[in-house]
């Protein structure tokens, strides 16, 4: 029994089938494997990307928050300043008003005093004239003795 040729042909068949597998079966297996690899790689990439986006968004939100807080603080400060200003302003206005009212009253008083003094002087002048005319027994012409009368009145007024 000689099996040399049988052996050779068996070897050829083996390589033939190996070729068949290589051409028709292997590509499908490899494609499935590579598709799986790609799916996993893509998924991991997407996860990493969204992770990065999340951290970026967090940082941005922090920035915005800090900004808003700063601006709020500034606004509060400005408002405080403004209110102080208003208070100060009101104080100033009130003081001025008071001053004005006081000086007005003082002027009034001065004016009244002057008027009273004036009236008094005239009254005294008249009285002095009447007294003098009675003393002399005759009319004194107020025009001719005006100088004298005025002087008298002024003295009375001073006195």
């Amino acid at each position: 029994m000689d099996i040399a040729i049988t052996l050779v042909i068996q070897g050829l068949v083996f390589f033939g089938v190996a070729w068949l597998v290589m051409v028709f079966i292997w590509p499908h297996i490899i494609a499935a494997i590579e598709a799986r690899q790609k799916t996993i790689a893509d998924g991991l990439d997407a996860a990493a990307k969204s992770q990065k986006e999340l951290s970026e968004a967090t940082a941005r939100s922090k920035d915005i928050l800090r900004d808003a807080r700063d601006r709020a603080a500034l606004l509060i400060e400005q408002a405080n300043k403004r209110s102080n200003e208003i208070v100060e302003e009101a104080k100033g206005t009130a003081a001025n008003e008071a001053q004005r009212l006081v000086s007005q009253a003082q002027g009034e008083v001065a004016r009244e005093t002057t008027r009273a003094r004036e009236g008094l002087r005239q009254e005294v002048g008249k009285l002095a004239l009447q007294g003098a005319s009675r003393v002399l027994g005759r009319d004194i012409d107020s025009n001719t003795h005006a100088d004298l009368l005025d002087q008298l009145a002024a003295e009375v007024a001073r006195g």
Partner: peptide, 28 residues
Amino acid sequence: FTLDAALNHVSTYVMGGAQFIAGFIWTA
């Protein structure tokens, strides 16, 4: 198919081809 076959015989080549084809089909 090719058991005890001799290289100087025509039937060896016919049977050899048959063995290859049959073997190929059956293995696949």
